[in-house]
Design a protein around this nucleic acid. Structure first.
Ligand SMILES: [Zn+2]
Ligand SMILES: [Zn+2]
Ligand SMILES: [Zn+2]
Ligand SMILES: [Zn+2]
Lengths: 131, 131
DNA sequence: AGGCTATTGATAATGATTGTCAAAACCACG
DNA sequence: CGTGGTTTTGACAATCATTATCAATAGCCT
């Protein structure tokens, strides 16, 4: 069976206390900064588990790193992410859901899944960049 | 200035001769298999260049590898990829383009880019899997 | 042909992620 | 409450893709 450890809970809470997406390495550093002695491998395992159980969303950063986030929306959704400060907005994407299903079946594909992320500069970072 | 070398041309041709997306490592192996003595670092550089110049498309595989493909469509487009055999179909995504722009501006985001890929099982692999 | 400079490639370095495995922590169960 | 069988942890090694080095090579212009 699956056991409950303070390590898993610590990762869950640290993820909840983080705004945008964060890497396993960064979350581990963050935990260490607060005095937690949790191991790096454990953070990787916990994040992987949370992701599989649907308690966390994950995506690949443009440079190939796995990033995680505890999302408030429970169902399937996507993200609008500021590539400068990391601010993240959860967004529904009905048009995309139907489009993806349709284009897949049109070409005879089954078990279609999709990766849909929007990256940009948030209003704040846009203002700062204009200076 | 930029120089023409047989290495760059070899990478371009090898990419043209490949159906789906392929990693730098795999392309290097493929080239070696045909007797080419091209270096791995050179393959990485060539693919990176081709991608920047828009002569090749690139995407991150679900497990974080960078994959490349020489697409026939010149403009902006997306892909429907068989996660089993790699068969790739280039697809337009007008609904998604407008949706992405709209959702970004609605939240005050600028310079919006998007990652949109559909993974599934092609008709052939679906049939084989059913056995 | 000669020289200047971009490119190559063998190799080392980096960095994220996963594997290893003995020690520590859980959790029924008695 | 102990105890024991199992699961989980974590320090460390091992992988694996990608990038940095840098001397040697090869385009290209005159
Ligand atoms: Zn921002
Ligand atoms: Zn979706
Ligand atoms: Zn297929
Ligand atoms: Zn698009």
């Amino acid at each position: 069976m699956k056991r409950n450890t303070w390590q898993r809970e610590a990762v869950r809470e640290a993820l909840d206390g983080t705004d945008g997406f964060i890497s396993a390495q960064a979350l581990h550093s963050s935990l260490h900064a607060t005095g937690s002695p949790i191991g790096l491998a454990t953070v990787y395992r916990a994040l992987s588990d949370l992701s599989e159980q649907g308690e966390a969303d994950s995506l690949q950063s443009p440079d190939g790193e796995s990033l995680y986030r505890a999302c408030s929306t429970t169902g399937h959704h996507h993200h609008l992410i500021c590539r400068n400060c990391g601010l993240t907005v959860e967004i529904g994407a009905e048009p995309v859901e139907t489009w993806a299903q349709q284009v897949a079946s049109e070409h005879g594909f089954t078990q279609a899944a999709h990766v849909v992320d929007v990256f940009g500069l948030c209003a704040n970072c846009t203002r700062l960049a204009a200076v």
